[in-house]
Design a protein around this nucleic acid. Structure first.
Lengths: 258, 258
DNA sequence: CCAAAAGTGTTGGAGGTACACCCATGA
DNA sequence: TCATGGGTGTACCTCCAACACTTTTGG
Protein backbone atom coordinates (compact mmCIF):
# COMPACT_ATOMS: atom_id res chain seq x y z
CA UNK A 1 0.00 0.00 0.00
CA UNK A 2 2.75 2.43 0.87
CA UNK A 3 0.74 4.65 3.14
CA UNK A 4 1.05 5.11 6.91
CA UNK A 5 -1.03 2.59 8.77
CA UNK A 6 -0.91 3.62 12.38
CA UNK A 7 0.99 5.91 14.70
CA UNK A 8 2.08 5.01 18.20
CA UNK A 9 5.69 5.95 18.70
CA UNK A 10 6.96 7.66 21.79
CA UNK A 11 10.04 9.44 20.51
CA UNK A 12 11.82 10.17 17.31
CA UNK A 13 15.51 10.73 17.49
CA UNK A 14 18.73 9.81 15.88
CA UNK A 15 17.93 9.46 12.23
CA UNK A 16 20.86 9.12 9.91
CA UNK A 17 21.42 12.78 9.22
CA UNK A 18 20.48 13.96 12.70
CA UNK A 19 23.95 15.35 13.09
CA UNK A 20 24.16 17.17 16.35
CA UNK A 21 27.91 16.64 16.22
CA UNK A 22 29.91 18.44 13.60
CA UNK A 23 31.85 16.26 11.23
CA UNK A 24 34.64 16.64 8.74
CA UNK A 25 33.87 15.71 5.15
CA UNK A 26 37.02 13.61 4.80
CA UNK A 27 36.19 11.03 7.44
CA UNK A 28 34.02 7.96 7.39
CA UNK A 29 31.25 8.07 9.97
CA UNK A 30 29.53 5.03 11.47
CA UNK A 31 25.75 4.99 11.87
CA UNK A 32 23.47 2.37 13.38
CA UNK A 33 19.95 1.74 12.06
CA UNK A 34 17.36 -0.86 12.97
CA UNK A 35 14.59 -2.57 11.05
CA UNK A 36 11.89 -3.14 13.67
CA UNK A 37 9.31 -5.76 12.79
CA UNK A 38 6.02 -6.15 14.57
CA UNK A 39 2.62 -7.53 13.73
CA UNK A 40 0.01 -5.22 12.26
CA UNK A 41 -3.68 -5.97 12.49
CA UNK A 42 -5.67 -3.95 10.05
CA UNK A 43 -9.27 -4.27 11.18
CA UNK A 44 -10.45 -4.83 7.65
CA UNK A 45 -7.69 -7.15 6.44
CA UNK A 46 -8.18 -10.87 6.23
CA UNK A 47 -5.01 -11.66 8.12
CA UNK A 48 -2.14 -10.08 10.00
CA UNK A 49 0.69 -8.31 8.22
CA UNK A 50 4.30 -7.51 9.13
CA UNK A 51 4.75 -3.79 9.71
CA UNK A 52 7.79 -1.61 10.43
CA UNK A 53 8.10 1.91 11.83
CA UNK A 54 9.65 4.58 9.63
CA UNK A 55 10.67 8.16 10.38
CA UNK A 56 10.07 11.03 8.01
CA UNK A 57 13.24 12.97 7.36
CA UNK A 58 13.06 16.65 8.21
CA UNK A 59 16.32 17.77 6.60
CA UNK A 60 18.62 17.02 3.71
CA UNK A 61 19.55 14.66 2.32
CA UNK A 62 16.29 13.02 1.27
CA UNK A 63 14.17 15.55 3.18
CA UNK A 64 10.55 14.46 3.25
CA UNK A 65 11.23 10.80 2.49
CA UNK A 66 10.75 8.01 5.02
CA UNK A 67 13.79 6.35 6.55
CA UNK A 68 14.74 3.70 9.08
CA UNK A 69 15.16 4.86 12.66
CA UNK A 70 18.82 5.14 13.58
CA UNK A 71 21.60 7.35 14.83
CA UNK A 72 25.32 7.86 15.04
CA UNK A 73 27.57 5.47 16.87
CA UNK A 74 28.99 7.05 20.02
CA UNK A 75 32.74 6.86 20.53
CA UNK A 76 32.31 4.95 23.81
CA UNK A 77 29.40 2.76 22.81
CA UNK A 78 29.40 -0.75 21.38
CA UNK A 79 27.42 -1.53 18.25
CA UNK A 80 24.90 -3.55 20.23
CA UNK A 81 24.47 -0.74 22.73
CA UNK A 82 23.95 1.77 19.96
CA UNK A 83 21.28 -0.44 18.44
CA UNK A 84 19.52 -0.83 21.78
CA UNK A 85 19.67 2.90 22.40
CA UNK A 86 18.30 3.64 18.95
CA UNK A 87 15.47 1.24 19.51
CA UNK A 88 14.69 2.58 22.96
CA UNK A 89 14.63 6.12 21.62
CA UNK A 90 12.22 5.05 18.93
CA UNK A 91 9.81 2.76 20.72
CA UNK A 92 10.56 3.36 24.38
CA UNK A 93 10.86 -0.37 24.93
CA UNK A 94 13.40 -3.15 24.76
CA UNK A 95 12.74 -5.58 21.90
CA UNK A 96 12.26 -9.28 22.48
CA UNK A 97 14.80 -9.95 19.76
CA UNK A 98 17.68 -7.85 18.46
CA UNK A 99 20.35 -9.09 16.11
CA UNK A 100 22.86 -7.56 13.75
CA UNK A 101 21.74 -7.73 10.14
CA UNK A 102 24.47 -6.39 7.87
CA UNK A 103 26.93 -3.56 7.40
CA UNK A 104 26.12 -1.35 4.43
CA UNK A 105 28.99 0.67 3.06
CA UNK A 106 28.57 1.59 -0.59
CA UNK A 107 30.41 4.81 -1.32
CA UNK A 108 27.42 6.58 -2.88
CA UNK A 109 24.75 5.51 -0.42
CA UNK A 110 24.88 8.94 1.18
CA UNK A 111 26.32 12.32 0.11
CA UNK A 112 28.93 12.04 2.84
CA UNK A 113 30.69 8.77 3.60
CA UNK A 114 28.57 6.74 6.02
CA UNK A 115 28.91 3.08 6.95
CA UNK A 116 25.66 1.87 8.50
CA UNK A 117 25.61 -1.10 10.83
CA UNK A 118 22.02 -2.27 10.52
CA UNK A 119 20.23 -4.35 13.14
CA UNK A 120 16.85 -6.00 12.99
CA UNK A 121 14.44 -6.44 15.88
CA UNK A 122 11.18 -8.11 16.76
CA UNK A 123 8.68 -6.23 18.91
CA UNK A 124 6.05 -8.16 20.83
CA UNK A 125 2.51 -7.09 20.24
CA UNK A 126 1.92 -6.38 23.93
CA UNK A 127 4.97 -4.14 23.98
CA UNK A 128 3.61 -2.09 21.11
CA UNK A 129 0.26 -1.70 22.81
CA UNK A 130 1.88 -0.67 26.07
CA UNK A 131 3.81 2.14 24.47
CA UNK A 132 0.75 4.00 23.26
CA UNK A 133 -1.99 2.79 25.59
CA UNK A 134 -0.58 2.42 29.09
CA UNK A 135 0.67 5.92 29.73
CA UNK A 136 -0.94 8.47 27.49
CA UNK A 137 0.74 11.26 29.45
CA UNK A 138 4.08 10.08 28.07
CA UNK A 139 2.92 10.54 24.52
CA UNK A 140 5.08 12.66 22.30
CA UNK A 141 4.01 15.99 20.82
CA UNK A 142 1.98 15.98 17.67
CA UNK A 143 4.85 17.22 15.52
CA UNK A 144 6.88 14.14 16.37
CA UNK A 145 3.87 11.93 16.04
CA UNK A 146 3.37 12.94 12.48
CA UNK A 147 6.96 12.07 11.66
CA UNK A 148 6.68 8.39 12.58
CA UNK A 149 4.32 5.84 11.13
CA UNK A 150 3.93 2.13 10.66
CA UNK A 151 4.13 0.73 7.15
CA UNK A 152 3.30 -2.60 5.65
CA UNK A 153 6.76 -4.09 5.20
CA UNK A 154 5.78 -5.82 1.97
CA UNK A 155 4.81 -2.64 0.12
CA UNK A 156 6.89 0.39 0.98
CA UNK A 157 7.18 3.74 -0.77
CA UNK A 158 10.55 4.98 -1.96
CA UNK A 159 12.70 5.39 1.13
CA UNK A 160 15.72 7.58 1.80
CA UNK A 161 19.26 6.32 1.14
CA UNK A 162 19.43 2.59 0.36
CA UNK A 163 16.81 1.79 2.95
CA UNK A 164 14.50 0.00 0.51
CA UNK A 165 17.28 -2.47 -0.17
CA UNK A 166 17.97 -2.81 3.53
CA UNK A 167 14.36 -3.61 4.38
CA UNK A 168 14.22 -6.13 1.55
CA UNK A 169 17.24 -7.89 2.98
CA UNK A 170 15.82 -7.81 6.50
CA UNK A 171 12.57 -9.33 5.26
CA UNK A 172 14.53 -12.03 3.50
CA UNK A 173 16.41 -12.80 6.71
CA UNK A 174 13.19 -12.82 8.71
CA UNK A 175 11.52 -15.28 6.36
CA UNK A 176 14.68 -17.36 6.22
CA UNK A 177 15.12 -17.50 9.96
CA UNK A 178 11.50 -18.36 10.54
CA UNK A 179 12.06 -21.40 8.36
CA UNK A 180 14.75 -23.03 10.47
CA UNK A 181 14.56 -21.25 13.81
CA UNK A 182 11.69 -20.54 16.15
CA UNK A 183 11.62 -16.80 16.62
CA UNK A 184 8.05 -15.96 15.67
CA UNK A 185 7.12 -15.88 19.35
CA UNK A 186 9.15 -12.67 19.50
CA UNK A 187 6.19 -10.95 17.90
CA UNK A 188 3.65 -12.23 20.46
CA UNK A 189 2.92 -11.68 24.14
CA UNK A 190 4.11 -14.03 26.88
CA UNK A 191 1.16 -16.36 26.52
CA UNK A 192 -0.44 -17.15 23.21
CA UNK A 193 -2.56 -19.75 21.50
CA UNK A 194 -1.27 -21.96 18.73
CA UNK A 195 -3.64 -20.21 16.33
CA UNK A 196 -2.06 -16.88 17.18
CA UNK A 197 1.43 -18.31 16.67
CA UNK A 198 0.36 -19.85 13.40
CA UNK A 199 -1.04 -16.51 12.29
CA UNK A 200 2.41 -14.99 12.80
CA UNK A 201 4.07 -17.63 10.67
CA UNK A 202 1.43 -17.16 7.99
CA UNK A 203 1.99 -13.40 7.97
CA UNK A 204 5.76 -13.80 7.63
CA UNK A 205 5.76 -16.64 5.13
CA UNK A 206 2.83 -15.27 3.16
CA UNK A 207 0.93 -18.56 2.93
CA UNK A 208 -1.57 -20.61 4.88
CA UNK A 209 -0.36 -23.40 7.14
CA UNK A 210 -2.24 -26.53 8.11
CA UNK A 211 -3.40 -26.10 11.73
CA UNK A 212 -3.04 -29.79 12.55
CA UNK A 213 0.47 -30.16 11.16
CA UNK A 214 1.55 -26.83 12.60
CA UNK A 215 0.46 -27.97 16.04
CA UNK A 216 2.52 -31.13 15.89
CA UNK A 217 5.60 -29.35 14.55
CA UNK A 218 5.81 -26.76 17.28
CA UNK A 219 4.83 -29.24 19.98
CA UNK A 220 7.58 -31.63 18.92
CA UNK A 221 10.13 -28.85 18.67
CA UNK A 222 10.17 -28.61 22.45
CA UNK A 223 10.14 -24.82 22.39
CA UNK A 224 6.63 -24.42 23.77
CA UNK A 225 5.45 -25.00 27.31
CA UNK A 226 1.69 -25.57 27.73
CA UNK A 227 0.02 -23.65 30.53
CA UNK A 228 -3.17 -24.37 32.43
CA UNK A 229 -4.87 -21.27 31.11
CA UNK A 230 -7.13 -21.00 28.10
CA UNK A 231 -8.10 -18.22 25.74
CA UNK A 232 -11.88 -18.14 25.74
CA UNK A 233 -13.53 -16.76 22.64
CA UNK A 234 -16.46 -17.41 20.43
CA UNK A 235 -15.68 -21.10 20.09
CA UNK A 236 -13.89 -23.88 21.85
CA UNK A 237 -11.30 -22.40 24.24
CA UNK A 238 -7.70 -22.71 23.09
CA UNK A 239 -4.86 -23.62 25.42
CA UNK A 240 -2.33 -20.88 26.09
CA UNK A 241 1.33 -21.67 25.56
CA UNK A 242 4.50 -20.03 26.78
CA UNK A 243 7.90 -19.99 25.12
CA UNK A 244 10.61 -22.20 26.58
CA UNK A 245 13.59 -19.90 26.83
CA UNK A 246 16.04 -22.65 27.72
CA UNK A 247 16.16 -23.82 24.14
CA UNK A 248 16.81 -20.31 22.85
CA UNK A 249 20.54 -19.96 22.53
CA UNK A 250 21.32 -23.11 20.62
CA UNK A 251 21.84 -21.88 17.07
CA UNK A 252 23.06 -18.34 17.67
CA UNK A 253 26.69 -19.37 17.38
CA UNK A 254 29.65 -18.19 19.43
CA UNK A 255 28.40 -14.61 19.54
CA UNK A 256 25.98 -15.13 22.40
CA UNK A 257 25.31 -11.84 24.10
CA UNK A 258 24.24 -12.66 27.65
CA UNK B 1 48.41 -27.48 17.20
CA UNK B 2 48.85 -23.75 17.15
CA UNK B 3 52.04 -23.68 15.14
CA UNK B 4 52.62 -22.44 11.59
CA UNK B 5 52.04 -25.15 9.05
CA UNK B 6 53.13 -23.73 5.75
CA UNK B 7 54.08 -20.44 4.18
CA UNK B 8 53.15 -19.32 0.69
CA UNK B 9 51.93 -15.74 0.79
CA UNK B 10 52.88 -13.12 -1.73
CA UNK B 11 52.40 -9.94 0.22
CA UNK B 12 51.64 -8.78 3.70
CA UNK B 13 49.98 -5.45 4.01
CA UNK B 14 47.21 -3.70 5.73
CA UNK B 15 47.04 -5.28 9.14
CA UNK B 16 44.90 -3.57 11.70
CA UNK B 17 47.53 -1.24 13.10
CA UNK B 18 49.25 -0.60 9.78
CA UNK B 19 48.30 3.04 10.05
CA UNK B 20 49.95 4.92 7.28
CA UNK B 21 47.34 7.64 7.76
CA UNK B 22 47.40 9.68 10.91
CA UNK B 23 44.28 9.54 13.02
CA UNK B 24 42.73 11.51 15.84
CA UNK B 25 42.04 9.64 19.05
CA UNK B 26 38.47 10.94 19.28
CA UNK B 27 37.16 9.38 16.08
CA UNK B 28 35.93 5.92 15.27
CA UNK B 29 37.88 4.26 12.49
CA UNK B 30 36.58 1.50 10.22
CA UNK B 31 38.77 -1.50 9.44
CA UNK B 32 38.15 -4.47 7.19
CA UNK B 33 39.52 -7.93 7.95
CA UNK B 34 39.02 -11.27 6.28
CA UNK B 35 39.02 -14.84 7.50
CA UNK B 36 40.38 -16.83 4.55
CA UNK B 37 39.65 -20.52 4.60
CA UNK B 38 41.40 -23.04 2.44
CA UNK B 39 42.15 -26.72 2.61
CA UNK B 40 45.35 -27.88 4.25
CA UNK B 41 46.88 -31.24 3.51
CA UNK B 42 49.41 -32.21 6.11
CA UNK B 43 51.34 -35.09 4.58
CA UNK B 44 51.14 -37.06 7.80
CA UNK B 45 47.53 -36.36 8.75
CA UNK B 46 44.77 -38.85 8.13
CA UNK B 47 42.53 -36.31 6.44
CA UNK B 48 42.37 -32.74 5.22
CA UNK B 49 42.01 -29.82 7.60
CA UNK B 50 40.70 -26.28 7.26
CA UNK B 51 43.52 -23.76 7.51
CA UNK B 52 43.63 -19.96 7.57
CA UNK B 53 46.47 -17.49 6.97
CA UNK B 54 47.50 -15.21 9.83
CA UNK B 55 49.87 -12.26 9.94
CA UNK B 56 52.32 -11.65 12.76
CA UNK B 57 51.98 -8.16 14.15
CA UNK B 58 55.14 -6.10 14.02
CA UNK B 59 54.01 -3.18 16.18
CA UNK B 60 51.76 -2.30 19.08
CA UNK B 61 49.16 -3.16 20.05
CA UNK B 62 49.62 -6.90 20.39
CA UNK B 63 53.07 -6.84 18.81
CA UNK B 64 54.30 -10.35 18.16
CA UNK B 65 50.87 -11.98 18.21
CA UNK B 66 49.16 -13.39 15.15
CA UNK B 67 46.21 -11.52 13.63
CA UNK B 68 43.79 -11.70 10.73
CA UNK B 69 44.88 -9.97 7.53
CA UNK B 70 43.10 -6.67 7.08
CA UNK B 71 43.40 -2.95 6.61
CA UNK B 72 41.69 0.39 6.89
CA UNK B 73 38.66 1.27 4.85
CA UNK B 74 39.45 3.93 2.27
CA UNK B 75 37.17 6.95 2.13
CA UNK B 76 36.23 6.23 -1.51
CA UNK B 77 36.03 2.45 -1.28
CA UNK B 78 33.04 0.23 -0.62
CA UNK B 79 33.23 -2.44 2.06
CA UNK B 80 33.25 -5.19 -0.54
CA UNK B 81 36.03 -3.47 -2.45
CA UNK B 82 38.07 -3.07 0.72
CA UNK B 83 37.66 -6.76 1.46
CA UNK B 84 38.72 -7.71 -2.06
CA UNK B 85 41.71 -5.41 -1.89
CA UNK B 86 42.73 -6.83 1.46
CA UNK B 87 42.49 -10.32 0.13
CA UNK B 88 44.40 -9.49 -3.03
CA UNK B 89 47.15 -7.87 -1.00
CA UNK B 90 47.39 -10.97 1.15
CA UNK B 91 47.11 -13.80 -1.32
CA UNK B 92 47.56 -12.09 -4.66
CA UNK B 93 44.42 -13.78 -5.94
CA UNK B 94 40.67 -13.30 -6.09
CA UNK B 95 38.79 -15.75 -3.88
CA UNK B 96 36.14 -18.06 -5.25
CA UNK B 97 33.82 -16.95 -2.47
CA UNK B 98 33.74 -13.73 -0.46
CA UNK B 99 30.95 -12.73 1.88
CA UNK B 100 30.49 -10.33 4.73
CA UNK B 101 30.60 -12.07 8.10
CA UNK B 102 29.87 -9.61 10.88
CA UNK B 103 30.70 -6.15 12.16
CA UNK B 104 32.65 -6.19 15.41
CA UNK B 105 32.48 -3.04 17.47
CA UNK B 106 33.08 -3.62 21.16
CA UNK B 107 34.55 -0.52 22.74
CA UNK B 108 37.54 -2.28 24.29
CA UNK B 109 38.46 -4.53 21.38
CA UNK B 110 41.35 -2.20 20.54
CA UNK B 111 43.14 0.60 22.43
CA UNK B 112 41.68 3.12 19.99
CA UNK B 113 38.11 2.91 18.79
CA UNK B 114 37.94 0.56 15.79
CA UNK B 115 34.89 -0.98 14.17
CA UNK B 116 35.94 -3.96 12.07
CA UNK B 117 33.82 -5.17 9.18
CA UNK B 118 34.91 -8.79 8.87
CA UNK B 119 34.54 -10.84 5.70
CA UNK B 120 35.13 -14.51 5.16
CA UNK B 121 36.47 -16.10 2.01
CA UNK B 122 37.08 -19.48 0.45
CA UNK B 123 40.27 -20.03 -1.51
CA UNK B 124 40.45 -22.81 -4.06
CA UNK B 125 43.30 -25.22 -3.64
CA UNK B 126 44.61 -24.54 -7.15
CA UNK B 127 44.66 -20.82 -6.43
CA UNK B 128 46.80 -21.39 -3.36
CA UNK B 129 49.22 -23.52 -5.30
CA UNK B 130 49.44 -20.97 -8.07
CA UNK B 131 50.43 -18.18 -5.75
CA UNK B 132 53.60 -19.87 -4.55
CA UNK B 133 54.41 -22.27 -7.36
CA UNK B 134 53.65 -20.64 -10.69
CA UNK B 135 55.77 -17.53 -10.45
CA UNK B 136 58.54 -17.90 -7.94
CA UNK B 137 60.07 -14.61 -9.06
CA UNK B 138 57.06 -12.81 -7.58
CA UNK B 139 57.73 -14.28 -4.17
CA UNK B 140 58.00 -11.84 -1.32
CA UNK B 141 61.17 -11.21 0.66
CA UNK B 142 62.00 -13.50 3.49
CA UNK B 143 61.13 -10.96 6.14
CA UNK B 144 57.55 -10.82 4.94
CA UNK B 145 57.46 -14.54 4.46
CA UNK B 146 58.19 -15.09 8.08
CA UNK B 147 55.33 -12.86 9.08
CA UNK B 148 52.61 -14.91 7.41
CA UNK B 149 51.74 -18.53 8.05
CA UNK B 150 48.92 -20.99 7.72
CA UNK B 151 47.28 -22.30 10.87
CA UNK B 152 44.89 -25.11 11.55
CA UNK B 153 41.63 -23.21 12.05
CA UNK B 154 40.45 -25.59 14.74
CA UNK B 155 43.40 -25.03 17.08
CA UNK B 156 44.77 -21.51 17.09
CA UNK B 157 47.12 -19.80 19.52
CA UNK B 158 46.06 -16.64 21.29
CA UNK B 159 45.49 -14.03 18.60
CA UNK B 160 45.58 -10.23 18.70
CA UNK B 161 42.45 -8.22 19.47
CA UNK B 162 39.25 -10.28 19.48
CA UNK B 163 40.39 -12.31 16.52
CA UNK B 164 40.00 -15.65 18.27
CA UNK B 165 36.33 -14.90 18.74
CA UNK B 166 36.05 -13.77 15.13
CA UNK B 167 37.57 -16.96 13.75
CA UNK B 168 35.30 -19.04 15.99
CA UNK B 169 32.30 -17.26 14.55
CA UNK B 170 33.57 -17.64 10.99
CA UNK B 171 34.06 -21.36 11.55
CA UNK B 172 30.55 -21.62 12.90
CA UNK B 173 29.20 -19.87 9.84
CA UNK B 174 31.25 -22.08 7.54
CA UNK B 175 29.94 -25.25 9.14
CA UNK B 176 26.43 -23.86 9.18
CA UNK B 177 26.48 -22.81 5.56
CA UNK B 178 27.92 -26.09 4.42
CA UNK B 179 24.89 -27.74 5.97
CA UNK B 180 22.26 -26.04 3.86
CA UNK B 181 24.18 -24.54 0.95
CA UNK B 182 26.66 -25.97 -1.50
CA UNK B 183 29.78 -23.89 -1.17
CA UNK B 184 32.40 -26.53 -0.45
CA UNK B 185 33.40 -26.49 -4.12
CA UNK B 186 34.86 -23.06 -3.36
CA UNK B 187 37.80 -24.87 -1.79
CA UNK B 188 38.48 -27.08 -4.79
CA UNK B 189 39.74 -26.62 -8.32
CA UNK B 190 37.46 -26.38 -11.35
CA UNK B 191 37.23 -30.12 -11.79
CA UNK B 192 37.15 -32.54 -8.90
CA UNK B 193 36.07 -36.03 -8.01
CA UNK B 194 33.23 -36.75 -5.64
CA UNK B 195 35.72 -38.21 -3.19
CA UNK B 196 37.62 -34.92 -3.15
CA UNK B 197 34.41 -32.98 -2.59
CA UNK B 198 33.40 -35.35 0.16
CA UNK B 199 36.79 -34.89 1.80
CA UNK B 200 36.09 -31.15 1.98
CA UNK B 201 32.77 -31.70 3.66
CA UNK B 202 34.34 -34.13 6.10
CA UNK B 203 37.08 -31.63 6.96
CA UNK B 204 34.55 -28.86 7.60
CA UNK B 205 31.96 -30.90 9.44
CA UNK B 206 34.52 -32.94 11.33
CA UNK B 207 32.90 -36.32 10.68
CA UNK B 208 32.91 -39.08 8.10
CA UNK B 209 30.22 -39.17 5.43
CA UNK B 210 28.89 -42.23 3.66
CA UNK B 211 30.33 -42.16 0.12
CA UNK B 212 27.23 -43.74 -1.43
CA UNK B 213 24.75 -41.37 0.19
CA UNK B 214 26.97 -38.37 -0.40
CA UNK B 215 27.09 -39.17 -4.08
CA UNK B 216 23.30 -39.26 -4.39
CA UNK B 217 22.83 -36.08 -2.40
CA UNK B 218 25.12 -33.93 -4.49
CA UNK B 219 23.96 -35.52 -7.74
CA UNK B 220 20.32 -34.84 -6.93
CA UNK B 221 21.05 -31.29 -5.82
CA UNK B 222 21.67 -30.36 -9.44
CA UNK B 223 24.75 -28.33 -8.59
CA UNK B 224 27.24 -30.67 -10.25
CA UNK B 225 27.85 -31.23 -13.92
CA UNK B 226 29.59 -34.51 -14.82
CA UNK B 227 32.42 -34.24 -17.33
CA UNK B 228 33.89 -36.84 -19.67
CA UNK B 229 37.22 -36.78 -17.90
CA UNK B 230 38.40 -39.07 -15.17
CA UNK B 231 40.96 -38.82 -12.42
CA UNK B 232 43.22 -41.82 -12.78
CA UNK B 233 44.96 -42.99 -9.68
CA UNK B 234 45.84 -46.16 -7.96
CA UNK B 235 42.40 -47.67 -8.36
CA UNK B 236 39.29 -47.40 -10.47
CA UNK B 237 39.26 -43.99 -12.19
CA UNK B 238 36.81 -41.49 -10.72
CA UNK B 239 34.68 -39.22 -12.85
CA UNK B 240 35.54 -35.54 -12.68
CA UNK B 241 32.72 -33.10 -11.95
CA UNK B 242 32.36 -29.39 -12.48
CA UNK B 243 30.25 -26.96 -10.51
CA UNK B 244 27.06 -25.66 -12.12
CA UNK B 245 27.27 -21.93 -11.58
CA UNK B 246 23.71 -21.28 -12.75
CA UNK B 247 22.30 -22.56 -9.46
CA UNK B 248 24.61 -20.35 -7.45
CA UNK B 249 22.68 -17.22 -6.64
CA UNK B 250 19.46 -18.75 -5.37
CA UNK B 251 19.73 -18.36 -1.61
CA UNK B 252 21.95 -15.32 -1.31
CA UNK B 253 18.99 -13.01 -0.84
CA UNK B 254 18.50 -9.53 -2.24
CA UNK B 255 22.15 -8.59 -1.72
CA UNK B 256 23.41 -10.25 -4.88
CA UNK B 257 26.68 -8.72 -5.91
CA UNK B 258 27.04 -9.31 -9.62
C1' DC C 1 -28.81 -28.29 17.30
C1' DC C 2 -25.41 -25.82 14.46
C1' DA C 3 -21.25 -23.41 13.12
C1' DA C 4 -16.57 -23.03 13.80
C1' DA C 5 -12.39 -23.53 15.88
C1' DA C 6 -9.55 -26.88 18.87
C1' DG C 7 -7.39 -30.94 18.76
C1' DT C 8 -6.38 -36.23 17.12
C1' DG C 9 -5.53 -40.02 13.82
C1' DT C 10 -4.08 -41.88 9.50
C1' DT C 11 -2.02 -42.18 5.14
C1' DG C 12 1.41 -41.57 1.58
C1' DG C 13 5.43 -39.45 -0.38
C1' DA C 14 10.17 -37.35 -0.07
C1' DG C 15 14.51 -37.59 1.59
C1' DG C 16 18.24 -39.25 4.69
C1' DT C 17 20.99 -43.25 6.88
C1' DA C 18 22.87 -47.76 6.97
C1' DC C 19 24.70 -51.26 4.51
C1' DA C 20 24.97 -55.05 1.12
C1' DC C 21 26.58 -55.56 -3.28
C1' DC C 22 28.79 -55.12 -8.10
C1' DC C 23 32.47 -52.65 -11.14
C1' DA C 24 37.03 -51.28 -12.72
C1' DT C 25 41.68 -50.51 -12.18
C1' DG C 26 46.83 -50.98 -10.50
C1' DA C 27 49.88 -53.88 -8.65
C1' DT D 1 44.21 -62.58 -8.31
C1' DC D 2 43.52 -59.36 -4.93
C1' DA D 3 42.95 -55.06 -2.60
C1' DT D 4 40.74 -50.74 -2.93
C1' DG D 5 38.08 -47.16 -4.03
C1' DG D 6 34.19 -46.06 -7.58
C1' DG D 7 29.52 -46.65 -8.12
C1' DT D 8 24.46 -48.93 -7.59
C1' DG D 9 20.52 -51.02 -5.18
C1' DT D 10 17.62 -51.38 -1.31
C1' DA D 11 15.47 -51.55 3.22
C1' DC D 12 14.29 -48.68 6.87
C1' DC D 13 13.38 -44.58 9.38
C1' DT D 14 11.87 -39.89 10.14
C1' DC D 15 9.66 -35.92 8.87
C1' DC D 16 6.14 -33.48 6.53
C1' DA D 17 1.84 -32.52 3.74
C1' DA D 18 -2.89 -33.72 3.15
C1' DC D 19 -7.10 -34.64 5.03
C1' DA D 20 -10.73 -37.24 7.52
C1' DC D 21 -12.40 -37.19 11.93
C1' DT D 22 -13.73 -36.13 16.90
C1' DT D 23 -14.27 -32.58 20.70
C1' DT D 24 -15.84 -28.39 22.81
C1' DT D 25 -17.51 -24.15 23.14
C1' DG D 26 -20.97 -19.83 21.92
C1' DG D 27 -25.13 -18.69 20.02
Amino acid sequence: MGTPLRVNMTQTMGTIANTSSAHAEDTTRVAVSTVIFTLGRDPGADRATVVIPLVRRTRDPYEGLWALPGGWLDIAESLDAAASRTLAETTGLAPSFLEQLYAFGAVDRSPSRVVSIVYWALLRSDEVDASDADEPTRMTPASVFENTSWFDAASLPRLAFDHNEIVEYALWRLRNKVGYSRIAHGLLADEFTLAELREVYEAILGRRLDPANFRRQVENSGNLLPTDRFRTGSHRPARLYRYNQDVELADRGPLVRH
